[in-house]
């Protein structure tokens, strides 16, 4: 295979990484933007999504497409419900105090991880993809499922954007993000908004996980890499900026995938971390974040 087709293949593989990273990072960015909570447990919501998808597909059975669709519908809902419960039981009681919530979400990270280890086990297990055919290009064949992951992730992101910009609930979330106290003075139940945002953020991570789990197997430690990349993406894109997060996810996802493809995954992580350091030094508000005085 010549360099051109090889590069195209690398780009397509990287686009899958970018698509799922965008979903995960937008969830993290929403939670930080609205609640000012640095959710260290975000990667574990990703892991729970993957594990839930495995349980659902195995429990439901039937044709793979049906089991997968059920997992895609139910796993994010289950993870969102767990997140809303965690918000009500833990974060709300801490009054969303920034330092305390960081410690609390570190605690949640270990609770979720150990729960998965206890109930799911230490093994990595795959979920069968909903369909299994290859699209034949002139140079190579490529998994149609991987292309559908990119398409589905893009559709979900457009849906999130429409929800935030066109719906009343989205308007309420954006108002709460700007000024929680004034939002309350206009009848907005900000506790409910926070629970909904935490659930939505976790649900997006879970959708990303369900989409990726037929490609990468479900494992109780699989939340680490998405968490690191999502944090890098959110910092580079600008804390709380969804547009910046999506653009940064595409940049970082593509570059991470390409570097990993041509050189090594470790080098990709080193360069991504260096990029964060550069952004923090030269543009601490991120590429698309508003400068705070």
């Amino acid at each position: 295979m010549g360099f051109g087709p090889f590069l195209l293949l690398a780009l397509m593989e990287s686009a899958v990484t970018a698509a799922t990273l965008a979903l995960t990072a937008v969830g993290l960015s929403l939670v930080f933007g609205v609640m000012r909570v640095v959710n260290v447990a975000h990667g574990e919501f990703f892991m729970l999504g993957a594990v839930a998808a495995w349980f659902i597909t195995n429990f439901i059975g039937g044709p793979p497409w049906f089991a997968f669709l059920m997992a895609l519908a139910l796993a994010p809902l289950a993870v969102a419900a767990i997140a809303a419960l965690a918000d009500r039981l833990i974060l709300k009681r801490l009054d969303y105090e920034p330092e305390a919530t960081i410690v609390a979400t570190i605690g949640l990270l270990y609770i979720f991880q150990q729960a998965a280890l206890s109930f799911y086990g230490p093994q990595a297990m795959p979920v069968e993809p909903p369909f299994n055919f290859r699209i034949q290009l002139p140079w190579f064949g490529y998994s149609a499922y991987k292309l559908s992951v990119i398409l589905l992730a893009a559709l979900v992101l457009i849906g999130v954007w429409l929800f935030l910009t066109r719906s009343k609930a989205g308007l309420v979330m954006r108002a709460t993000q700007v000024d929680r106290e004034t939002a309350q003075a206009f009848g907005i139940d900000t506790d409910r908004v926070y629970a909904a945002v935490f659930a939505l953020g976790a649900g997006l991570a879970a959708i990303a996980a369900v989409l990726i789990v037929p490609i990468a197997q479900a494992h109780y430690l699989m939340g680490h890499d998405p968490l690191l990349l999502a944090f890098i993406t959110v910092i580079v894109g600008g804390l709380g900026s969804l547009r910046g997060t999506v653009i940064a996810a595409i940049l970082i996802g593509l570059s991470d995938g390409l570097i990993a493809f041509f050189w090594s995954p470790t080098l990709a992580k080193i360069l991504a971390t260096l990029l964060v350091a550069m952004v923090l030094v030269f543009r601490p508000q991120g590429l698309f974040g508003a400068r705070t005085t």
Binding site: R174, V178, D179, G187
Partner: peptide, 19 residues
């Protein structure tokens, strides 16, 4: 204490939604 990044129409909408 306006919702600064929101438009004028959206700020008014927040008020209208209250009651």
């Amino acid at each position: 204490r306006l919702f600064g990044p929101l438009t004028v129409a959206e700020n008014l909408q927040i008020g209208l939604m209250t009651r």
